[in-house]
Design a binder for these strands. Sequence first.
DNA 1: TTGAAAGCGCTAACAT
DNA 2: ATGTTAGCGCTTTCAA
Lengths: 332, 332
Amino acid sequence: MDKSVTIKHVAKESGYSLATVSRVVNGNQNVKPATRKKVVEVIEKLNYRPNAIARGLASKKTTTIGVVIPDIANVFFSSLALGIDDVATMYKYNLIIANSDGIEEKEVNVLNTLLGKQVDGIIFMGHNLNDNIRAEFSRTRTPIVMAGTIDPDAQVASVNIDYTAATKDSTKKLVENGNEKVAFVTGPLIYPINGKERLSGYKQALKEEELEFNEGFVFEANYSFEDGQKVAERVHGSGATAAVVTDDDLAAGLLDGLLELGVKIPEEFEIIASNNSPITKMLRPRLSSISQPLYDLGAVSMRLLTKKMAGEEVEEKSIKLPYRIEKRGSTK
Amino acid sequence: MDKSVTIKHVAKESGYSLATVSRVVNGNQNVKPATRKKVVEVIEKLNYRPNAIARGLASKKTTTIGVVIPDIANVFFSSLALGIDDVATMYKYNLIIANSDGIEEKEVNVLNTLLGKQVDGIIFMGHNLNDNIRAEFSRTRTPIVMAGTIDPDAQVASVNIDYTAATKDSTKKLVENGNEKVAFVTGPLIYPINGKERLSGYKQALKEEELEFNEGFVFEANYSFEDGQKVAERVHGSGATAAVVTDDDLAAGLLDGLLELGVKIPEEFEIIASNNSPITKMLRPRLSSISQPLYDLGAVSMRLLTKKMAGEEVEEKSIKLPYRIEKRGSTK
DNA sequence: TTGAAAGCGCTAACAT
DNA sequence: ATGTTAGCGCTTTCAA
């Protein structure tokens, strides 16, 4: 089989040296066209395929990027991954994607595996960035970019939207629609994206609208449809007439739970979701949502990584992409 | 940095040879415990991390699996990927995931890249298996397993459910519920999974129920919510009172379109979807659906691949996993 | 139980 | 424009 065809065979068969064949394979210009032609012919005849591993060892470049992802089956992250992949492909990189389940120990683990595999760069996605991870980051010279992931200390390069501002805008919108009691239905507050960024956006909005912050309107839950359903009764019972929800599945569950209680949406209760994922457009009523450019978040992260890998000094460490609020049926 | 710590440094620092250090790293038993201990200490002290690339070159194993996926942001495939990843991790393999967009040319392309990277095995997911791909498959000795992907000729190892039987069951169920006109709303018929497997299941059901097959009840569309919405009017206009839909997004769109037309679900129209993805449980009414064990499909594929990589001769080439029909609100 | 040495397949100076 | 050669960091006989 072609399993064993190496550059040596091609060299021998074509009558040229290893170096020349290597040049042809790598598109080096210092090769006479006639030579190139002959070599290419032999390559095709022998069905030679360069061994990327050997190449990687010799050149210290693997054209492979490591991607740490908390859950590949989660639309939010897989959408980012799609953007990452497209740009990576554009730059001839492949992706080693490693699931971390969002568990710190696994994150450290896969990070080390990826570094062992000599990836040229790493894109990290996670819910929060703890010290262990940060320690690993600082132990390597491999360029790293975080996508859709908050670094409270802004040490590592990252690409995000301004979650604080987005949440603030959403909250204000709901207040302006006439709701004096706006609930904040959030994923785990230990994740900085919720506990820091979004919560402070929510508070800022209340302040600017001259409303009191009230802990009773903050509902913490997991990112899931079921949790949304479960929390619906309490949210409704609190007297709130609107909610900013930090996750789409959670928002979908809340919607479902409220409808189950006979609450009219948006007449009696308004909802704004956070990721503008496909389900927001499939539910009835459609969910209004903060629209994050997920694909772009991934794409820009990867683009940034290529720059860092090329050794370009990047001035802007924390890139913020623009967001919108997509008005649909769940708000007035 | 630890970037340059190699096995040589460890050997020198510990006073042992390369071979011994290598043995320690690889858990070889022929090492005196005392020696092992010393070497391990040096490894930790120096923060040595074996270079997987060099190892791959020397050992001809990369502990990396190539995964070809048509769309990583599609729940169906990303759920499979999750199963693949879990089992891969269990066996200490990493995944290079390459998006093919379901385009033949790219599939061939990424396949070659993966082989060039000396992956130890390949999991292929696609909509259909054309001759080009099959040709590539037969040119390599790298083990390959197809996940959730039909090979009409059953040449390549694959893991699926019995789509024909599942579609037949669904159709019969609808007929038994009293529907004499059951529509078949399908993704592209050029995909064997639709054009061969599912369509023939649909036909078989009609035959067994002594109903005529009528092309007018077959609606071809793309796998998307929008296409479902668009086709709703035609489906309803055809006089059909139920539909088997080969994709969940498509089914969701059909549901939405029908509701828009004022059709009562399930009283006036019943729907059975095909993938039991999360959205089937989020819509109102909930979509009844064929339930494929997506995660398992991936997990079993990967498990099968490990066997093939270990050189075990696998008797069963086409593994069929069990399916169920999940009854929910969209059927009576 | 340990070590020496020959590669794995390729790239990248350095020569010519 | 082409060739020679010394590695890249590791595994793996083969000896000792």
